[in-house]
């Protein structure tokens, strides 16, 4: 299976070198692509100096736009699967073979690296948000997704084209919910994630609140009416 690791990076000058060097030395069987989402820091420069495979977006598109750029690259490059892999060191590449194996064995459309298949979900503020989303997906689809906000997702060839070319296919729980409703096969495997080593997190408190509001409205009102073409 020809697998592409998509590494979206926004202002990750402190992390990107370590993450990519690790991928290159330990997992040469997979291709990778760094998607620099218009960073203001030296992220692009570091990638160019080391000769890393780089999509350098000249302006900031946000997570969804950068992710779609990676999907387009995977689709045009004829990859069998593409995985979203954070550039800040939160994701551990040792789970990549497990995700790929699961996709092949289960013939899944999407495999999610979940923190909570076997582990119990804590009651922190962030995880209460995760519980609300999990419940929303349960109510609207009847399926159990234990870690809907996990950023570690492997997509099969079948869905890559859809993600690459359609509107409203962001890498977010509401898209997962929508695809579940349309009959996509989504599997989860247990992974452990690290705390980010350097740099700042993307989600502030007002942003998290807005995010939750959008996601709940989207799952309950919008995905319900959407039809797949």
């Amino acid at each position: 299976m020809k697998v592409l690791i998509m590494v979206p990076a926004y202002n990750e000058e402190e992390n990107i070198e370590r993450v990519i060097q690790h991928l290159i030395s330990e997992y040469p069987q997979y291709d990778y692509i760094v998607i620099n989402d218009g960073s203001q820091d030296a992220t692009a420069q570091i990638c160019q100096d080391h000769g890393y495979h780089l999509l350098d977006l000249p302006i900031n598109l946000g997570l969804a736009g950068g992710f779609q750029a990676g999907m387009k690259y995977a689709w045009l490059g004829g990859y069998d699967a593409a995985i979203q892999f954070d550039g800040d060191g939160q994701h551990d590449p040792k789970y990549l073979p497990l995700l790929v194996e699961t996709m092949e064995k289960e013939k899944a459309d999407i495999v999610i690296g979940s923190r909570f298949v076997e582990e119990k979900k804590p009651w922190s503020a962030r995880m209460i948000g995760s519980r609300i989303l999990q419940l929303a997906i349960r109510i609207t689809t009847g399926k159990k997704i234990t870690d809907p906000t996990s950023g570690m997702r492997l997509f099969s060839k079948k869905v890559i084209q859809e993600f690459a070319t359609s509107m409203n296919y962001g890498p977010e729980p509401d898209t997962i919910c929508y695809l579940l409703r349309q009959g996509a096969k989504i599997k989860e495997v247990q992974v452990t994630m690290h705390e980010r080593i350097a740099g700042e997190s993307y989600l502030s408190i007002p942003r998290s609140f807005w995010y939750m509001l959008c996601m709940t409205i989207s799952i309950f009102f919008i995905q319900w009416f959407r039809k797949r073409r």
Binding site: D174, C214, I217, S218, I222, F225, R226
Partner: peptide, 15 residues
């Protein structure tokens, strides 16, 4: 939204 002419984020306000 069904016709892919509007982004979900923009539709939230009208809903």
């Amino acid at each position: 939204i069904n016709k892919s002419q509007m982004q979900i984020g923009d539709s939230i306000y009208w809903i």
